[in-house]
Design a protein around this nucleic acid. Structure first.
Length: 835
RNA sequence: GCGGGGGUGGCGGAACUGGUAGACGCAAGGGACUUAAAAUCCCUUUUCCCGCAAGGGAAGUGCGGGUUCGAUUCCCGCCCUCCGCACCA
């Protein structure tokens, strides 16, 4: 009988569906486990990256299911977004046509791969039943002051023709168009107040069992910096300049103040200046370069003196006020004190423009006299040290000085503690069509008015001419735009921007718990049962986009009383990319391997097995045509092996094997088989719990299959009885069921069982059967392997020592030399140390 | 510059808390079966050296040191590489 994956996979997929095998409901009597994989964007076809992601998730879902958990394992569609809209603009068809036909196609492909999803729970983000809750959340946030509108300088992608969030700008370019530099535009936009949660987003990371690099990236992105603000009075004007510094301990070394070109005081300085034209010209020149360009490390530092001075409140020194191109209005106060001796940027700038340099920090253990004379320096000393030339603070260490000086500044009223974050509020307005309409109305009389809850959803109008140019497409639809104000009934206009699609994915996984509920975004009792997500699996590319928004969303939901936890996802796993010829698979590189074609050739089980076997799951996986052939050959071998013995074991009960064992009647070959089976079971089970080295699990299952194969003669001769063979094959098949579910169910049936392997409890390891009876112990002389001895597992260290020293090979190397000591690692190794 | 991964045969990769380096798979070579091929099965395969052979010896996990009876694993100093962040005051 030939292994025919097409026929087998069709048969079992139909049966699984008929028996509703993957459908789950909350059951308070059972432990729950929520396995979540990042939902796909319906782009047309699934790719190998999806297969890898979902094969990992499915193996876990099946394992926890066999371990007895009630498992939620859903999938859905991140269905709003630009690609569908762009395709629509090109073809003149509606984005929903593309989206829904792609969803149908991709659903079929995922089903072809046999993933154990509860398809009744499918969520599609572009349907009104879903996005109405985006709108509902938006209004809730508006009511809580967490959604607000402001004029802001925002990132604009000329290809997307829309605004981008800061998180969507990568190296100064659009995240979807890596060759398109982001422009800056002043626009009125909606923002969500992610900054209100900056501290929580940071602090709550300590409870997350997430990959360190993701946490690091998020930490960097949030960018907390603790420091002080200090006011410098401006000489001759009734103004002061507030600077932010993390190094107030260096303030006696301040020899200038630097202002950003956009600093609000600059207008006044120009007005009061003796040379207003010249100053204005300098300011304009710096403003002309974008913030993006000014953030470049290699940017040459430039600036100009304003002609004004400011007074250092600590020592009363007057320092010149300059404008400097590297100072950003968007961070801190837009003004910094220049301490060239202890800051590299200030050093570079002050050296360029001949501003004085004054040393006020020296490394600990430096003689103070020496320090006093060392104002001429080759570079900045930026580390903490001991203060010198700092009045009453001289002699203090930096840490202590920071505390004391900030306290004093507070007492004296010219400064205070201050924390700044790099994190900005999330700009969610998008000037595009294919997204959730923002449910806001502008009334000339009442101002901004949210759409009343009973009027939700604000349905995305279907008949819109899409050009992809200029402003929001919805603005061209009068029936949509013109409304009556919900408050006063007067004429009003709707908001025509739509929401960033990352809003959709910020809470979709809550909706899976009850995807059809129409009275709330989700059913609270169901969420209480299933949440938090036990394991989330997806690509690293969302480390600071989706994965930070999603955490923010949950915290907001907690604060408005929807959930009672702060973090939605306990464990996160990032799988590596699938690459070919050293590069990520992409149409433009022409190195795409189509999973559907691979399924047609080898079957889903082979594709999935290969995805798990070819590399550890967190590393990149290089596609190999020969590699997948190997996976296919292995499944063929297993299939033939089970088929060969099927007749003689089908009706045998494995209970007999247990009985035989208890009676101590196992033959050496039987012991060998059962030992290998139980050892493999132990390793695979342990590994599924934590380590997730699926590649080694598969390797061990292959070893077990090889072992059973090698026992062929013993099986034929009866030295391995049918019931023992069956016990081993049962375990082999149950382990395979995690990775290759179709062939496993087929073989499970062949072995005489009635149900799907998925419904079988994960077998228990019998430590007695897994234990070795005889150990092979390597014997080293001075750390070099010289012999191996075989000893009973029960042998004592003394017996092992005696045997080791008696070994001919060992004596050859110890003869005539003094044995200094004999190291014995119990059950592992002997090392004879000779002089 | 800062932070986080990596560097092991011809290739993908094993080696869990220091204890037989190279599991498993691929590729390659040889053999069996076959009229032949495919498929399948068996054997060999880190490098170098001695030996007709059985067998034996030496070196070996990016490089240089160190700790240890023993280091792919721990420590110090380098090199290379991938990823993230970066004039954030």
């Amino acid at each position: 009988m030939e292994y025919d994956p097409q026929q087998i996979e069709k048969k079992w997929q139909e049966r699984w569906a008929r028996e509703h095998l993957f459908e789950t409901e909350p059951d308070p009597a059972r432990r729950e486990y929520y396995v979540l994989e990042m939902l796909p964007y319906p782009s047309g076809d699934i790719h190998m990256g999806h297969v890898r992601n979902y094969s990992i998730g499915d193996a876990l879902a099946r394992y926890v299911r066999m371990k007895g958990y009630n498992v939620l394992h859903p999938i859905g569609w991140d269905a709003f977004g630009l690609p569908a809209e762009n395709a629509a603009i090109k073809s003149g068809r509606h984005p929903s046509e593309f989206t829904f036909s792609y969803i149908d196609r991709m659903r079929g492909q995922l089903q072809r791969l046999g993933f154990s999803y509860d398809w009744r729970r499918e969520v599609t983000t572009c349907v009104a039943e879903y996005y109405r809750w985006n709108q509902w959340f938006f209004i809730k946030m508006f009511e809580h002051g967490l959604a607000y509108r402001k004029q802001a300088r925002v990132n604009w992608c000329t290809k997307c023709e829309t605004v981008l969030a800061n998180e969507q700008v990568v190296d100064g370019c659009c995240w979807r168009h890596e060759d398109t530099p982001v422009e800056e535009r002043e626009l009125e936009q909606w923002f969500l107040k992610t900054t209100a949660y900056a501290d929580q987003l940071l602090d709550d990371m300590k409870d997350l069992r997430w990959p360190e690099r993701v946490l690091t990236m998020q930490r960097n992105w949030i960018g907390k910096s603790v420091g002080s603000e200090v006011d410098f009075d401006v000489d001759g004007l009734e103004e002061s300049i507030r600077i932010f510094t993390t190094r107030i301990d260096t303030i006696y070394g301040c020899t200038a103040l630097f202002l950003a070109a956009e600093h609000p005081l600059i207008e006044k300085l120009i007005a009061a200046s003796e040379q207003p034209e010249e100053l204005a010209r300098e300011v304009e020149r710096i403003k002309a370069s974008s913030v993006q360009a000014r953030v470049e490390v290699n940017l040459k530092k430039e600036g100009a003196p304003t002609g004004f001075k400011a007074r250092n409140p600590f020592n009363g020194a007057d320092v010149p006020i300059w404008i400097a191109n590297f100072v950003l209005m968007g961070y801190g106060t837009g003004a910094v004190m220049a301490v060239p001796a202890h800051d590299e940027r200030d050093f570079e700038f002050c050296s360029e423009y001949g501003l004085p340099i004054r040393t006020v920090i020296v490394p600990e253990n430096t003689a103070v006299d020496e320090a006093a004379a060392s104002d001429a320096r080759a570079d900045a000393f930026t580390e903490y040290g001991v203060l010198v030339n700092s009045g009453a603070y001289s002699g203090l260490r930096s840490e202590e000085a920071i505390t004391r000086m900030t306290d004093d500044a507070e007492k004296r009223g010219f400064g205070k503690r201050k924390v700044y974050f790099r994190l900005r509020d999330w700009g969610v307005s998008r000037q595009r069509y294919w997204g959730t309409p923002i449910p806001m109305i502008y009334c000339n009389a009442c101002g901004i008015v949210p759409v009343p809850e009973q009027d939700l959803p604000v349905v995305l109008p279907r008949n819109v001419k899409l050009t992809g140019e200029g402003r929001a497409a919805l603005a061209t639809v009068p029936e949509f735009v013109d409304v009556k104000c919900p408050k006063c009934g007067g004429p009003a206009r709707r908001e025509t921007d739509t929401m960033d699609t990352f809003v959709d994915s910020s809470w979709y996984f809550y909706r899976y718990t009850d995807p059809t509920i129409s009275t709330a975004p989700f059913d609270r009792a169901a969420v209480k049962y299933w949440f938090p997500v036990d394991q989330y699996i997806g690509g690293i590319e969302h480390a600071i986009l989706h994965l930070i928004y999603m955490r923010f969303w949950t915290k907001v939901m907690r604060d408005i009383g929807l959930v009672d936890f702060a973090e939605p996802v306990t464990r996160l796993f990032n799988q590596g990319m699938v690459i070919k010829d050293g590069a990520k698979m992409s149409k433009s590189k022409g190195n795409v391997v189509d999973p559907v074609a691979m399924c047609a050739r080898y079957g889903a089980d082979t594709v999935r097995l290969y995805m798990l076997f070819a590399a550890p799951p967190e590393k990149d996986l290089e596609w190999s045509d020969q590699g997948i052939e190997g996976a296919f050959r292995f499944l063929n071998r297993v299939y033939r092996m089970v088929a060969r013995y099927a007749d003689r074991i089908r009706s045998v009960s494995t209970d007999d094997a247990v009985v035989a064992n208890a009676a101590g009647s196992l033959s050496p070959e039987e012991r060998r088989l059962l030992r290998k089976a139980h050892q493999t079971l132990k390793h695979v089970g342990d590994d599924m719990e934590e380590r997730w080295h699926f590649n080694t699990d598969v390797a061990l299952i292959m070893e077990l299959a090889n072992e059973i194969g090698d026992l062929g003669p013993a099986i034929e001769s009866g030295a391995v009885r049918a019931e023992v063979l069956k016990s081993g094959l049962d375990m082999l098949v149950l382990m395979l069921a995690l990775f290759t579910p179709h062939i496993a169910d087929e073989l499970w049936e062949t072995l005489g069982h009635q149900t799907s392997a998925l419904l079988v409890p994960w077998p228990a390891v019998d430590p007695a059967l897994a234990a070795e009876e005889e150990l092979e112990i390597p014997v080293q002389v001075n750390g070099k392997l010289r012999a191996r001895i075989r000893v009973p597992a029960t042998a004592s260290d003394d017996e092992i020592r005696t045997l080791a020293l008696a070994e001919t090979k060992v004596r050859e190397f110890t003869e005539g030399r003094q044995i200094a000591k004999v190291v014995i690692v119990p059950k592992k190794l002997v090392n004879v140390v000779v002089k």
